[in-house]
Design a protein around this nucleic acid. Sequence first.
DNA 1: ATAAGTGCAAACGATTTGCGACCGC
DNA 2: GCGGTCGCAAATCGTTTGCACTTAT
Lengths: 137, 137
Amino acid sequence: MLPPAKRITHQREIILQKLRSVTSHPTADELYMTVKEHLPRISIATVYRNLEWLVANGLAQKIEVSGRPKRFDGTVQPHYHVRCQMCGKVEDAVLAPLEDINSRAEKYTGYTICGHSIEFYGICPACSHDQKNSAHR
Amino acid sequence: MLPPAKRITHQREIILQKLRSVTSHPTADELYMTVKEHLPRISIATVYRNLEWLVANGLAQKIEVSGRPKRFDGTVQPHYHVRCQMCGKVEDAVLAPLEDINSRAEKYTGYTICGHSIEFYGICPACSHDQKNSAHR
DNA sequence: ATAAGTGCAAACGATTTGCGACCGC
DNA sequence: GCGGTCGCAAATCGTTTGCACTTAT
């Protein structure tokens, strides 16, 4: 199903464009910073509202994991994420989607399963490097 | 490794006991309510502090998913969860832990992977029933 | 005595909301 | 002109923190 193609306001457009131009899964606040460069008068509320709108209309994904601030993703294909436990960075984990586990879960839980998310957690290369350097102290 | 068996204060004990007595993955606040029945003067801060302590000492698990309030689990064995998108309830999904995907992810991401969490999302039996009943309107 | 743990209230960060102004059809 | 959207400020929610007071050892 194609997106309902409703109103695309200027701010909505810029937000989506900025979101698509990065691979860093920014938080609403981070996005607000960069969007503000082009639309200095935009408010953080607008960013939140439009991000939710984009998600609701299938133009973006929300990664709401780990208590931390929600992150957003301009890619809509299902994929998994890895989070660094030290610096909080989130990256994509390129693994083939495990389709079969949905039906398994459905069977065992009685829920109507719509999907699943997998988050790997660990230490990113940069942080594990830092860790070695400061092992003493 | 057995828990460090440090201080077990009265409030700590009650909190763990209450947490273990339910399967509902309560939030800190929900737990606070029930613990207060036994310890009327306990503060919410103590509940938060002790839940973190229990997690740090391997006596409980934190389920921090979906932006929503963190939930806690008195079971420490690794297992997955299903969340109802309508009522927010979290239940266990009895699926054998997928051990192999950790090493796969490690290979692809370059991270040192410590583990992963899977959350299925969908509609619980109760809510899908309600949905039918209120289909009109 | 001292180190750890507590209750309270205030602080915090992320997000949401109410509202009057505004913009595009 | 009207409905949808915006910017702003205030409100909310979950959680954390500073601090002075207890409590177990």
